[in-house]
């Protein structure tokens, strides 16, 4: 049943299969869906299935075939809810990133200074949370922070407070949750740059009379800068669109944009507006994402 195929042709076929299969999959399930989001963000919501107006009206006989509308984007600007959500998300993501850096930098530095084989164990302890359920780790903080949670229990039984503190369902809990889940993303790239640091440089500087804070500021920090930027982007980008953490740990008013988008879609069922929210979120993220890609390419080269 074997057919004789010219080997050159067979090689081209193999090359075609290798490239085309994943290419077509991504076109179909990544690029085209995103183009649809873009398209629907310019549509009007309709009470219909699907609940949005068509982009082109092929039945129109006059020149007015394009039915695109900027109403959704105009609404995003007019309704304070969205502006507040975007600004609040940016603020929470920025502050959480800074907190992750404050905690992650000393941790990564300490790991990089630890001799083997202990260093492997410490690294494993940073990587382990990556593999455990993100959702369950966020949930663990509900057990800690709740009105009847462990922290309130300890504070009350030690006599420091009489009434349980409201810690769960606050912005503070959201910051805590983001730092908790994303600090490993900060530690690993920092460790990767700090590991390569030449400690002889520190000693040379010390011999020449530099003080520890000068060594840190003038040698360690500049050399670790690529790791700092990579780590900050790895925390900031996912934190900005975060849904689960504000939904579980935040209060009703903790409207991060990921949550607003989710609610717009599932509660209000306004697909065009949800799409516009997504497009604007992506526009905000494009700059940090491109910066991250460039950094990756530089480190690959």
């Amino acid at each position: 049943m074997s057919t004789v195929v010219n080997p050159g042709k067979r090689d081209r076929l193999w090359r075609g299969v290798v490239i085309a299969t994943p290419y077509l999959w991504l076109l179909l399930f990544f690029l085209i869906p995103f183009a649809i989001v873009l398209k629907i963000s310019f549509a009007d919501p309709l009470v219909a299935q699907p609940p949005f107006s068509p982009f082109f009206d092929w039945t129109a006989t006059t020149g007015d075939r394009i039915l695109a509308t900027l109403d959704n984007y105009r609404f995003l600007l007019e309704d304070k809810l969205y502006l507040v959500s975007y600004l609040k998300s940016i603020k929470i993501a920025l502050i959480s990133t800074a907190l992750c850096l404050l905690l992650g930098f000393p941790m990564a530095y300490a790991i990089a200074l630890t001799p083997y084989p202990w260093r492997n164990l410490l690294l494993l302890l940073v990587i382990l949370p990556f593999w455990t359920s993100f959702l369950l780790r966020v949930y663990a903080w509900m057990v800690m922070l709740g009105k009847q949670g462990l922290i309130n229990h300890l504070l009350i039984s030690s006599g420091l407070i009489d009434e349980p503190l409201q810690m769960l369902y606050t912005d503070g809990a959201v910051y805590l949750g983001i730092v908790y889940t994303y600090v490993p993303f900060m530690i690993l790239p920092l460790y990767a740059t700090l590991e390569k640091l030449d400690l002889d440089l520190n000693e040379a500087a010390a011999d020449l009379g530099a003080r520890p804070h000068q060594i840190f500021r003038d040698i360690t920090l500049p050399l670790a800068l690529p790791g700092i930027i990579a780590g900050c982007l790895l925390v900031f980008i996912p934190a900005l669109g975060e849904y689960v953490i504000p939904a579980l740990l935040g209060g009703l008013d903790s409207l991060m944009i990921g949550r607003t988008l989710y609610d717009e879609f599932f509660v209000n069922r306004d697909w065009p507006l949800a799409s516009a929210v997504a497009v604007v979120l992506l526009l905000i993220l494009i700059l940090p994402i491109m910066l991250f890609q460039r950094l990756q390419q530089e480190s690959d080269a």
Binding site: F29, F30, G241, A274, L281
Partner: peptide, 30 residues
């Protein structure tokens, strides 16, 4: 170049956007 971009983008795309776009896509089933 487009291929490289399509491989890299899902890694940094917020989940809510990936989810939304795939839903809109499959809801075109009609």
């Amino acid at each position: 170049t487009l291929f490289t971009g399509m491989i890299a983008a899902p890694l940094v795309m917020p989940e809510v956007i990936t989810g939304l776009s795939l839903l809109l896509f499959v809801s075109l089933q009609e």
